[in-house]
Design a protein around this nucleic acid. Structure first.
Length: 1010
RNA sequence: GGGCGCUUAGCUCAGUUGGCUAGAGCACCUGCCUUACAAGCAGGGGGUCGGGGGUUCAAGUCCCUCAGCGCCCACCA
């Protein structure tokens, strides 16, 4: 007995039932011992940050992944969708710091490290649960038995192992570099955590007096003028640089200037980096340049490089909070003018210094200048380049033991060796083994790797993977023999070789032993001492304890979040341990993510996948659009324009949300999602989007079509089906379905979403509902036809559900269950055997039935439809109520009349005509409206309004003439006839003929009206 | 500064390799509660595809150029 089915689709109930069915069946679980004939299909989720709940971008990202996973699962592959979350170092720590400040009035430094990490941990627990719940609500068929977290034990082991291996291979080194310092939060920021903002600022032109005036072209020159946007940094200037090709260089290079305020004597050096002045240039640097560049190695990355080239002194004049200070490396702040500046904030100091130059008449000029300034994405203050010691990964250094596997050549057009980390990521792309969809993103990835710089991986944070390196300062055993330190203690060296790992600070080598590796730096702050860095492999806690007892100190810093994310495709599968999951599912098939992390994440996973496992982690990378609000702005908390997927699920249903998101997914790079406040049934006012109405309407339509099926499929007997009894509408719908199945499968193969979904939409709504179901109604009341109609209806609906399931899993499952109850066997004898599982999600994907494609049937039905539309047009024009039957007749060629007569019942039913006479040569009765439907003249009787008639025919005439004109033009153009493809010319001729015949008919009718 | 993308109906967007009178959804107008569906049905109005130039028998679709918008990357003299 069919259940009572409401006319409005109730997503809440259906979603809950389907979710329970799936969980009970354990269908999401990936079996690593499976021998599925279609092989495996795996995706690792881009782990959402545990900073906050998921937003609509995640909903899109995960919908697309679920579509692929569900589709492949139905195709018979053993699928694994690996779920999990990312600890997101700085971002999470920052939100927790904010919460603690707000709730307890305490700063991070008010806690012990363990205590603070505990607070972050509980934040993580809260949001991880929330995120996983959101994913489940969306219907994501992740393997929930395998949920990972980038800091869980499994992932942590992978991180430790990889760090150790990199260290052992001499790829990790200690470097002094300028980092992006956020003086407000007093942390280092990664490059990607710096936002560039256009700032309206100034160029100040300062005169620096020469120690000794020089003669240039007969003129006495007693100063040089430098231009700067950051006057406060001049306190740390240790040189003035000029281009060697500058005509003045000969006289000036080697001279000294006395730095104002400080009184320091600094050299003038020659460096190609300096841009020659050229007021006419389009290049801002040349336009504003004086030819002299103040060099502040401690406070500017460019200057740092210049400093390295000329061995300049590095003087840091700021404290970590951005104030001017003589406590962090500035030793000659003795002049009273300099003393005055100490303690000032950097921007205060800027003004004070400019004032000083003005007062001293050394300020030559001030010019407006708009430029990009890096800001902290957290505190939004300008970042300060700041000198500090950091851990780095050498990305272009050849890795000897990978030479055989990956080659040693320098990749063409780059300076990247194939067996360097950058090479490992770049080569598969160049060889076409790694593909981006859409293709244009390939370039992003390639350019980034070609210009890659060493990767700074340490972060001055508490939340993250603590760097597994212990340090000990010890007195040099003897000068010039640094390498013997402690070696006796570790009797069985595995490898021992000298490696230069850093340009600036040469280490004495990397020494590898059983469970640890170390290198040592010859220099130490303490004279006669050296510093030893020892990295300990995973699983050696006892050894670590021993080290600490001996006075070794573990590095406080943690690793960049991306270091652990880079391992995600295999750390989640238990690497480095050998196991079946890894063997079975690595490499995965595709990564589905947003373009903003192509470089940060995608490339690093490829790099580390190659380095650790020896294979790229996926062959395809699908990049989807970014979701913006109705005004084209990024969705963000601060703008209040975000949409919570759970809210969308409440307002429209999970399937509706998924449908809309997939439907918007084309190759475009941004999509807009208008945001509107709506009121939920429970009274909550929330942000959602009217765009989800599309999806909701579709689900409702689907629901009601199935409702119709439920009312008509009672007693469906598969044995009563006989392919010979199919009528034209059956053949037509099967032909349409056959085309749809192929289009959907092909579309998904090509990572299209909107296209296949649209194909099903049109088939389901426009063909199946609008025509087939309507035509099936009388057949359902006719015992002679009922069995055939029932079987076809059940079959087509079943196939529609399966095609839709990856997109809208809940509702299709709900209907599938109903269908299983009422018509369990839905195959069509002689056409297609169908097996249905307990759940649609494990039922086979529709196979191609291209043998059912029937062009003649489709053409015939098109004629029938056009006649019906013509009659409906007249009915609508004369406001004839649907319930009223009107008499009509039609005339056409003998052949066409035969077709129409055969199918007159179809026309009569959906056009509301009766009686309906069809014959060649029939004349238009008086008081009938005439419509030209292709080759057919249709007369709707008893309609009396000559004026209306004239109007309509006139309109149709214009329409046809509009079609004739360009065709005539083309065909009278000899070039077209001779040069265009013959079939195009033929097509045009046929079309023209048809239109001319229509025109003649219309004109005849018009003439008859008088 | 480098790279990428967008500009098609009132709104949000499709338009594959250039080729039938440029499409969809929403909104709008008219008529319908027709026994699955008013979150629906039937019918209808509305764009010459940002501006300009070029290639071609033929351009929304290729090339050049101008304008506007957006994103990513980049060491802020």
């Amino acid at each position: 007995m069919a259940r009572e089915i409401p006319t409005i689709y109730d997503s809440t109930a259906v979603e809950a039932e389907a979710a329970k069915l799936w969980a009970d069946g354990h269908y999401f679980h990936a079996d690593e011992t499976s021998e599925a004939p279609k092989g495996t299909y795996a995706i690792v989720i881009p782990p959402p940050n545990v900073t906050a709940a998921l937003h609509l971008g995640h909903a899109l990202n995960n919908t697309l992944q679920d579509v692929l996973i569900r589709w492949r699962r139905m195709q018979g592959a053993e699928t694994l969708w690996m779920p999990g979350t990312d600890h997101a170092g700085i971002a999470t720590q920052t939100v927790v710091e904010k919460r603690l400040l707000a709730e307890q009035g305490k700063r991070r430094t008010d806690f012990q490290r363990d205590e603070f990490v505990g607070h972050v941990q509980s934040w993580k627990d809260e949001y991880e649960a929330c995120i996983l719940g959101q994913l489940q609500s969306m219907g994501c068929s992740c393997d929930w038995d395998r949920v990972r977290f980038t800091m869980d034990e499994t992932c942590a082991k992978a991180v430790r192992t990889n760090f150790f291996n990199l260290f052992k291979d001499g790829l990790i080194y200690r470097g002094k570099r300028l980092v992006n310092w956020d003086p407000a939060t007093q942390t280092v920021l990664a490059d990607d955590e710096v936002e560039h903002q256009n700032v309206q600022g100034f160029f100040w032109y300062f005169q620096y007096p020469l120690e000794t005036p020089v003669e240039i072209d007969g003129q006495t020159v007693d100063h040089v003028t430098v231009a700067t946007t950051r006057p406060e940094t001049m306190l740390g200037d240790t040189a003035v640089a000029m281009n060697p090709s500058d005509p003045r260089a000969k006289a000036l290079v080697g001279q000294k200037v006395r730095l104002p305020i400080v009184g320091r004597l600094i050299p003038i050096v020659a460096d190609e980096h300096v841009v020659l002045p050229n007021p006419e240039s389009d290049d801002d640097k040349a336009k504003f340049s004086t030819g002299f560049l103040k060099v502040t190695p401690a406070h500017d990355p460019d200057d740092w490089q210049i400093g390295l080239r000329h061995d300049l002194e590095v003087i840091n004049v700021m404290a970590p909070d951005g104030s001017i200070s003589d406590k962090h490396g500035w030793e000659d702040a003795t002049a009273p003018e300099a003393q005055n500046l100490l303690g000032m904030d950097r921007f205060e100091a800027r003004e004070a210094i400019v004032d000083w130059f003005r007062t001293e008449k050394l300020l030559e000029e001030v010019r407006d200048y708009a430029h990009e300034v890096g800001h902290s994405y957290r505190s939004h203050v300008p970042i300060e380049p700041y000198l500090s010691d950091q851990w780095y990964i050498a990305v272009k250094k050849p890795i000897d033991h990978l030479a055989e596997k990956f080659g040693t050549e320098i990749l063409e057009g780059t300076d990247v060796p194939a067996n360097s980390l950058a090479g490992l990521a770049l080569k598969p792309l160049l060889e076409g083994r790694l593909k981006f969809y859409p293709e244009r993103y390939t370039k992003n990835y390639q350019l980034w790797l070609e210009n890659l710089r060493d990767w700074p991986i340490s972060r001055q944070l508490w939340w993250g993977h603590q760097i597994p390196v212990w340090t000990l300062d010890m007195q040099c055993p003897s000068e010039g023999d640094l390498t013997l330190v402690e070696e006796d203690e570790y009797p069985e060296p595995v490898i021992s070789e000298m490696q230069e790992v850093a340009e600036e600070q040469e280490t004495t080598g990397v020494f590898n032993f059983g469970n640890h590796a170390h290198f040592q730096l010859p220099h130490s702050e303490k004279e006669g001492w050296i510093r030893i860095y020892k990295c300990v492999d995973a699983g050696n806690q006892e050894y670590e304890k021993k080290l600490e007892e001996q006075g070794w100190v573990r590095d406080d810093d943690v690793l960049d979040t991306w270091f652990s994310s880079a391992l995600w495709p295999f750390s989640t599968m238990g690497w480095p341990d050998e196991n079946d999951t890894l063997k079975k599912f690595y490499p995965t098939q595709v990564l589905c993510t947003a373009r903003e992390i192509i470089t940060l994440w995608v490339s690093r996973m490829v790099m580390m996948g190659q380095y650790c496992v020896g294979e790229i982690p996926y062959s395809d990378v699908y990049i989807h659009a970014m979701i913006q609000d109705g005004q084209g702005r990024k969705m963000s908390k601060s703008l209040g324009n975000g949409i919570d997927p759970l809210v969308a699920i409440d307002s429209h249903g999970a399937d509706a949300m998924r449908f809309t998101l997939a439907n918007m997914t084309t190759d475009t790079q941004d999509v807009r999602m208008p945001v509107a406040e709506i009121e939920l049934p429970d009274g909550r006012k929330v942000n959602s989007s009217p765009k989800f109405d599309n999806g909701r309407n579709f689900c409702n339509k689907l629901w009601n079509a199935s409702r119709f099926a439920m009312l008509n499929l009672e007693g469906t007997d598969p044995n009563a089906f006989d392919a010979a009894k199919l009528d034209i509408t059956d053949k037509w719908i099967l032909s349409r379905l056959a085309k749809t199945i192929d289009a959907v499968t092909e579309g998904l193969e090509a990572y299209k979403y909107n296209e296949p979904l649209n194909e099903i939409y049109k088939f389901f709504w426009n063909d199946f509902c609008d025509w087939y179901l309507e035509w099936s109604k009388p057949r359902m009341q006719d015992d002679a036809q009922k069995a055939t109609a029932q079987n076809v209806l059940a079959f087509v609906l079943d196939q529609v559900l399966r095609l839709l399931h990856p997109f809208v899993p809940f509702i299709t499952e709900g209907i599938f269950q109903n269908l299983n109850a009422i018509a369990p066997n839905r195959g069509l004898n002689g056409i297609m055997e169908l097996t249905a599982g307990k759940s649609i999600m494990i039922s086979p994907w529709p196979e191609s039935i291209s043998g059912q494609i029937d062009a003649q049937v489709e053409a015939d039905i098109e004629v029938v439809q056009s006649v019906i539309r013509s009659i409906r047009e007249v009915r609508s024009q004369y406001n004839i109520p649907p319930s009223k039957k009107v008499p009509a007749s039609a005339s056409a060629s003998e052949a066409m009349c035969g077709l129409l007569n055969t199918n007159s019942a179809l026309i009569g039913q959906l056009a509301g005509v009766a009686p309906f006479e069809i014959a060649a040569g029939l004349e238009k009765p008086d008081n009938a409206a005439a419509v030209v439907a292709g080759e057919v003249q249709v007369y709707v009787h008893d309609v009396i309004d000559p004026d209306e008639e004239r109007k309509r025919l006139q309109k149709q005439k214009e329409f046809v003439e509009k079609g004739i004109r360009p065709l005539e033009g083309k065909l009278s153009n000899e070039n077209f006839v001779s040069r265009a493809k013959p079939e195009v010319v033929e097509q045009s001729r046929a079309k023209l003929k048809e239109l001319q015949e229509q025109l003649a008919a219309i004109e005849k009718h018009l003439a008859e009206l008088g």
